[in-house]
Design a protein around this nucleic acid. Structure first.
Lengths: 253, 253
DNA sequence: CGTCTCGTTGAGCTAAGTCAAGGTAGGTGG
DNA sequence: CCACCTACCTTGACTTAGCTCAACGAGACG
C-alpha cells in the first residue's frame, strides 16, 4: 500500500526547503542538516494512503512537493477531511518528549496522497530539535512553529465548519491555501495550482458536492474567482476576503 | 478581568489529581510533585475570561474543579466553541521546546470559565517533563498524553461539525463528556453534572439554540436521556451510542 | 414584585441536501 | 482515427434539516 520508490537528488524541492527555513532563522549548519535530510526522498503515487487511521504513526516526514490530506472515514462512508498538506509542511510530527511510548500510538486520522507526493524523513530533524543542543535551536523553533501552525489551521477549520456559511467557508479555505502556497512560492498574483477535486473540497468543508459546485458558480458569476484546469485565480482577492467574512486585519493570515 | 483569588489547601481537587495521575504511571516522588503544585490554587469566578484571544498565552494551568471552554468570537458576534475543559484537564499547555519564543505567542482562542474554576499553576510540571530527567518520565508521559487527548478531541469535533447531523452531534458530544467525566469520577451510572446552557451547547455544535432545543426534545421524548436541573441522565446509553452513529467499538472512547 | 436568564414552542423561511440526468475531457484499446 | 471508458463537473427539480423571528413560561434573585 505504501508503495514507495526511493530516489536521490530530488528536483523541485527547493521551495519547500526554503519555506521550512523561513519558519525560523537557521544557521548554515542547520540548513545543511535540512538539506541532508532531503537527500533521500520517497515518492508516493496519487491515491496512496500514506498513513492509515488507527495504525501506528509512521516516522515524521517533510513534504517536498505534492498535496496530501488528513481525513477520517465514518462507518457509513461519510468522510471528513481535517486539512490539506502542501510542500514545506510536516506530517506525523509530534514534538512530545518520551521517544518511546509516544510513537506506536494509533494514528487519529489517515493521511492520503492527493497528487504524487515527494517526502523525506524528518526523524533526524525531530531529534535535533529535541536534543537540547543550542546548535539546533533554529530547527527546534522551526518545528515548533510548524506544529503551532498546524494546530491553528485546525482551529480555523472548526470555525469554518461550525459558524461560517457555505459561501464564506469556500472563500476562507481558498484564502488559507493561497496564503500557505504563497509562503512556499507556489502561488502569486492571485493564482495557485489546485489539484483538489470538488469532492475533496466538499468533504473538507462539510458540504455536498452539488452544493459546493453551485456556490462556486456564485463566486464565478460574481467575477470574484475562477477554478479552471487545476488552477485557482482570485480575480478580486479583496472581494473574496470580504465574502469570507474576514476582518481586514485577519486578511493576510 | 482575571480577577483571581489565591488560596491554600484546595478542596475537592482529589479527583482531578487522581485523574491526572491516571494519564501515566507516576512514582511516589512524581505524585508528591503534582500535589505540591496543587497546593496553591487560583479561583476564577464563572464568566471570567481566563485567556483572551490574541493576547500572550498565560502559563499552563491544571484544572482542579469547574468547567471552562475554549472559543473564538467572530466580528459579527457569531461564536464557535472549540471544546470544553473539565477537572484534570490542562489549559495553555504546549510541550514545545524552546522556552523562550514559544511563550508570548498570541493565543489562537480565548478560554472562558463557565463555572467557578479552581486551577493551579502547571509550569513546574511542564518543566519537569521537559528537563529530560528520568525521574520525571512519568510526568512527561502524562503531559504528552494530555496534549494528545486534547488534539484527538479536536479532531472528533471537526468530524461532528462537518459530517454528523444535529441529532448525532448532540449524542456524540454527550458521550464524550460522559466518558471524560467518568475518568475523573464525576460521572457514573449514566449521570453527570451539566453546567452548560443550551446556548453553550449550540455554539459548540454549530447549531442555533432553538434547533438544539428541539433535537434535545427528540432525545427526551424517545426516552434516551434527560437534562434537568444541571444534570444529564443517559437513560439508555447504548441507544445513545447508536443515535450518535458510533460504531460499537468506538463507543467507549 | 419586577427583572433577568434560560428554556420551550409555533410559524414561516432558506440554506443545503438528494436524486437524477447530462456534459466534458483525458485515456485506452480496437 | 474512432469508439468507448471513466472521472469529474454541471444543472434541474424537489425535499428537508436547520435557521429566524417572536412570543411566552419558569425559576432565581434582589
Amino acid at each position: 500500500m505504501i508503495s514507495a520508490l526511493r530516489h536521490l537528488s530530488p528536483r523541485g524541492s527547493e521551495a519547500a526547503l526554503k519555506r521550512f527555513g523561513a519558519l525560523a532563522d537557521l544557521t548554515a549548519t542547520e540548513i545543511a542538516l535540512v538539506r541532508a535530510a532531503a537527500e533521500e526522498v520517497e515518492i508516493a503515487p496519487a491515491g496512496t494512503e500514506i498513513q492509515r487511521e488507527g495504525e501506528p504513526v509512521r516516522r515524521p516526514r517533510l513534504i517536498l512537493s505534492g498535496w496530501a490530506c488528513r481525513q477520517r472515514v465514518l462507518a457509513d462512508g461519510r468522510r471528513q477531511i481535517f486539512g490539506f498538506v502542501v510542500a514545506g509542511d510536516l506530517i506525523g510530527l509530534s514534538l512530545l518528549p518520551s521517544p518511546r511510548g509516544a510513537a506506536d500510538l494509533p494514528a487519529p486520522g489517515a493521511t492520503l496522497a492527493i497528487t504524487s507526493l515527494v517526502t523525506c524523513d524528518a526523524t533526524g530533524l525531530r531529534q535535533a530539535a529535541l536534543d537540547g543542543d543550542q546548535a539546533h535551536a533554529g530547527i527546534a523553533r522551526a518545528l515548533s512553529e510548524a506544529v503551532r501552525r498546524e494546530r491553528d489551521h485546525l482551529l480555523d477549520h472548526v470555525v469554518r465548519l461550525g459558524r461560517l456559511t457555505a459561501y464564506e467557508r469556500i472563500g476562507d479555505l481558498l484564502l488559507e491555501l493561497y496564503a500557505r502556497l504563497s509562503a512556499v512560492g507556489l502561488a502569486g498574483g492571485g493564482e495557485f495550482p489546485m489539484p483538489l477535486t470538488q469532492e475533496l473540497l466538499a468533504d473538507s468543508l462539510g458540504l455536498s458536492v452539488v452544493h459546493l459546485n453551485r456556490v462556486l458558480q456564485q463566486y464565478r458569476r460574481a467575477g470574484l474567482l475562477t477554478i479552471r484546469s487545476g488552477r485557482v485565480t482570485l480575480l478580486k482577492p479583496e472581494a473574496v476576503v470580504v465574502a469570507a467574512g474576514r476582518s481586514p486585519s485577519n486578511a493576510v493570515a
